[in-house]
Write a protein that binds this DNA or RNA. Sequence first.
RNA 1: GGAGGAUUCGCAUAGUGGCCUAGUGCGCACGAUUGGAAAUCGUGUUGGGGUAAAACCCUCACGGGUUCAAAUCCCGUAUCCUCCGCCA
Length: 419
Amino acid sequence: MIDLRVLRENPDLVRDSQRARGAELAPVDALIAADDRRRAAVARGDQLRSDQKAASNAVKTATPEERPVVLARARELAAEVKAIEAEQAAADAELRTAHLAVANIASPAAPPGGEDDFVTLEVVGTPPTVPNPRDHLEIGNALRAIDTDRGAKVSGSRFYFLTGVGAQLELALVNLAMARADEWGFTPVIAPALVKPETMEGTGFLGAHASEVYKLADDDLYLVGTSEVALAGFHADEILDSDELPLRYAGFSSCFRREAGSYGKDTKGIIRVHWFDKVEMFSYVRPEDAEDEHQRLLAWERDFMDALELSYRVIDVAAGDLGSSAARKFDIEAWFPSQQAYRELTSTSNCTTFQSRRLNIRARGATGNQPVATLNGTLCAVARTIACLFDHHQQPDGSVYVPPALRPWLGGREVLTPR
RNA sequence: GGAGGAUUCGCAUAGUGGCCUAGUGCGCACGAUUGGAAAUCGUGUUGGGGUAAAACCCUCACGGGUUCAAAUCCCGUAUCCUCCGCCA
């Protein structure tokens, strides 16, 4: 949710953001109107309640003669209060709906435009030159590391088994990611993959992308698409101590995505799947520290890419391609030789105070209690990272090079060789 | 899945229809006292809405209901605890 005070004082800031996102302006005007209506309803309701309270107090001090009159007046006011409260509840609901319909105010620094209007900030490393590169699935099959046929048999399309060295590679990546995060000061967390509707809504995933989310109808629970959801919900309805910020968590969980509307995209292999495991970084910071923290998260993501010896580029995602919660987003896209293309491996978003308003997360400070800023960043999305490692580090002889950082968890192996 | 019990301002508690504008202790903050500290004493200390600032309104797990009036009575829900059943 955006800050209604900002909207009241500077509505053009919000309108500019909507334009940059390529979104409609109507929801902004609807929100302004709903805010006005609600405040009017609150003022009327408060006045009536005050009157009714006075009338009710008069009942106990009334003499027996006065009592019938006083009581009648109190009854009348009670009925009016009941009516105005229904009106106020309707105005509240209307405001909430209008409020949820407006995305976070995009950073003025975010490039305007849509998916293709990103700005490349940096290109790191040199893409390897592999003659006749094979894709990750061919390599994974040869190594008996990835089994999508049996994944499909057991669970359907976009499912897979990791077997043998594939399974070990997942554990190696997760261990490396968690060890690094721990060094950087993150609290390691194993997070639940099932969350309540209010948690899912609070993180902004039930808006435009609701069709991406799996729901368990019988239990009123959602499967998370990222541990960001659980890590954001972790401090919901809490007032944090300003002095203990920043709070940083590295969460591991399975992630589930319906991938509705992505038919035909990345159907081969494990780049786009319905389920994968991920280590996600999540920070709670003071609002004024959010931009610096965003740069730190990006730096940590790059550090991990560097440890895996991948070549990649960093892009500044355009306003129109931001999630509804994000004010700014940087993606790291790694080079896939078989596709001769950069593909997204990590993504870090600055959600400013948008999520914390929805989830009611504040910090106690000198100027009162204020919403905190939340930021998230992928440390390692396992399946896609394995796909990239196979593709990127394939050797002409069919083996796959193992970067030193992963070797401690792979029995010291320097290369993976088909048996 | 079944049977009981619990949920009050950071923590512990008091509170069975109007004097609750929620008391007390601990903790915390500030001040007094002190050479400095402890102890002691005093003051303050839930959160939100609203306003130019006030006034004012809401908040006793949450949602309904009864009543002129609800922390208190009634119904439902959630969470936690104990026991039974099942179970990795």
